[in-house]
């Protein structure tokens, strides 16, 4: 079994300021594309900058995109979010499509999501409208006035009548019938 999840920070799904309810703010503030002008590992990045970067920037005017050429080093994408998070993506040997996909991901997520583990896939600030259970919910109100120990509350719930009780009932009915007959006479 892997224990790698132990190093992940447990977290709940959150959204800053109910983002997306009513209005949406792109949480990505700034992107820095760092690449080399000659190295082969930056080839995809260079192609992305030539072919697709202008379209990307036109689509997302709220994100500031910087480019930083540097010699003989692996290309990376550095993303900064409104909440201060900085995410760093190693773009070594990425194709231009892969870089576009990564940028779309960085653009659409609300913060740096690496290094965290979702404790649950669902989260709500209001788990119950009724309120959490207490020992007093669904409690029989007659218990509030009862004196303990109470002989009425001691015995088990018995729905059926016993043979003795039925016989006594029959006896009572018989007595009443006898009285009625006597009155009739």
């Amino acid at each position: 079994m892997s224990n790698s999840h132990l190093f992940l920070k447990p977290a709940f799904i959150t959204t800053p300021g109910q983002n997306g309810v009513g209005r949406y703010f792109c949480q990505l503030q700034r992107v820095v594309l760092k690449f080399c002008k000659n190295n082969g590992s930056s080839r995809g990045m260079r192609e992305f900058i030539e072919n697709k970067l202008i379209d990307f920037v036109k689509e997302t005017p709220e994100v500031a995109v910087y480019m930083k050429p540097r010699r003989h080093r692996t290309p990376i994408i550095r993303a900064e979010y409104l909440n201060g998070d900085t995410q760093w993506v190693n773009a070594r040997n990425f194709t231009e499509d892969e870089i576009l996909k990564w940028l779309q991901l960085l653009k659409t997520q609300s913060s740096d999501k690496t290094g965290i583990r979702l404790r649950k896939l669902l989260h709500t600030d209001h788990p119950s409208v009724q309120g959490p259970w207490t020992p007093y919910t669904f409690r029989d109100p007659k218990l509030n006035l009862a004196e303990f120990p109470s002989p009425e509350l001691a015995g088990p719930h018995v729905v059926e009548t016993t043979a003795t009780e039925e016989l006594l009932e029959m006896y009572k009915n018989q007595q009443i019938e006898d009285v009625n007959e006597k009155r009739a006479e």
């Binding site: 218990l143 009862a146 303990f148 120990p149 001691a154 015995g155 088990p156 719930h157 016989l167 006896y171």
Partner: peptide
């Protein structure tokens, strides 16, 4: 105490706990 746990079996009244009047007036088969 704010709750009573119900017993498992009903507790019948023992014959010597009935009064003499109750015993005498009890219907006989």
């Amino acid at each position: 105490v704010s709750n009573q746990i119900r017993q498992l079996r009903p507790v019948p009244t023992r014959l010597d706990r009935y009064t003499a009047e109750e015993v005498a007036s009890y219907p006989k088969l």
